[in-house]
Amino acid sequence: MSTAAHVDHLAISERIEGRLQRGELTPRQVDSYKEFLEEVDRDLFHHRVITSNAYTRWFQHGEATDAELRHFIRQFSVFSNQFLVAALLRVIHAPTLQQARAAKEILMNELGVIYHRPDRGEHRTEHVDDEGKDREGDPELVSTEGTVDGGTFRFRAAHFEWLLAVGQGLGLTYDDMGQRKHGQPYTLHFCNELQHLYGSEDGQISCGASFAVENWAAAGFWQELEDGLMHIKQTRIPHLRLAFFTWHNRVEAQHAGHVMEELEDVFFAPDFDRHRFFEGARGALEAVAMFWDGLEMDRTTGIAN
């Protein structure tokens, strides 16, 4: 997977150019930022979990057996549900009100507050039947843009409930998913590291972890998962519900356009610490890699069957 389409890491944005022209930044500061971006590209954007994920590359072909698919969904459900703890810690430990609000956008949407666009007014003007109303989390009925501020809460819009719907099509129930007791050691390590890094009390470490996680999420693995699941739905399991994966694929593509702007704000802040930023970022990517490596090992050794 090429990261060139993901972000032109050597480009200085119009925002930076504008600040330079206005005298808010010096040429030396901009050169330092350029050097930093090269390190970001070398150490983060070319991390193996972003450029070459063996498990998702295999999964994309849609050849997972029912047992392998259940194993994957169960482990992913543990990560997805336990991520709420890390997201809450990020809100609690946010170093600024702005960062706390940004963290709340993620947490509240995960819990079921639907994004809305205040500038567009009420967007559901068409008739929706009872079944449609019961699918508030369906990506066809919710927006991937906007804010949770003033948004509507729906139990069915909670991301974990969408994932439960996927599991139900495979014979999994609420009792089979989402709890730490269902997690393999590599899944629990991933969850623990997210809480430790993404939810760190050290704002520099949590910022690095968040930046790394967002870039991993926007780098294409959701598309690989959606491709594989769509093939399975079309060829074997027509009742499989995929809203969880299709929605995340759409929203993460949108997030890719925002991460560099966030990085600019962090880098030029007076208290920026490059070493601690990379500590959080590298640690998060290693934890992500351990999760996928574990799934790949389970697959190749037959544990998932």
Rank of each mutant, 00 (worst) to 15 (best):
A4N: 12
D8R: 05
A11V: 04
R15P: 04
R19Y: 00
L20Y: 11
R22M: 13
G23R: 03
G23N: 07
T26C: 00
Q29D: 08
S32F: 06
S32G: 14
R42S: 12
L44K: 08
V49G: 02
T51C: 12
N53E: 06
A54I: 00
T65W: 06
T65V: 03
D66L: 14
E68V: 02
F72W: 13
V78P: 07
Q82D: 09
F83D: 00
L89K: 15
V91M: 08
I92G: 01
A94K: 06
A94D: 03
L107E: 01
M108E: 13
E110Q: 09
I114P: 02
Y115D: 03
P118H: 13
E126S: 12
H127G: 02
V128P: 02
D129E: 01
K133Q: 10
D134L: 13
G137Q: 04
D138C: 10
P139L: 06
R156P: 02
V166R: 06
G171W: 08
T173A: 13
T187I: 06
H189F: 11
F190P: 04
L197M: 07
S200W: 01
G203I: 07
G208K: 02
G208R: 03
F211R: 08
A212K: 05
E214A: 12
L229H: 02
H231T: 13
Q234E: 14
T235K: 15
H239N: 15
E252K: 07
Q254S: 04
Q254P: 04
M260L: 07
V266M: 10
D271Y: 10
F277I: 09
F277P: 07
F278C: 05
F278V: 01
E279Y: 10
G283F: 03
V288I: 15
G294P: 08
M297N: 14
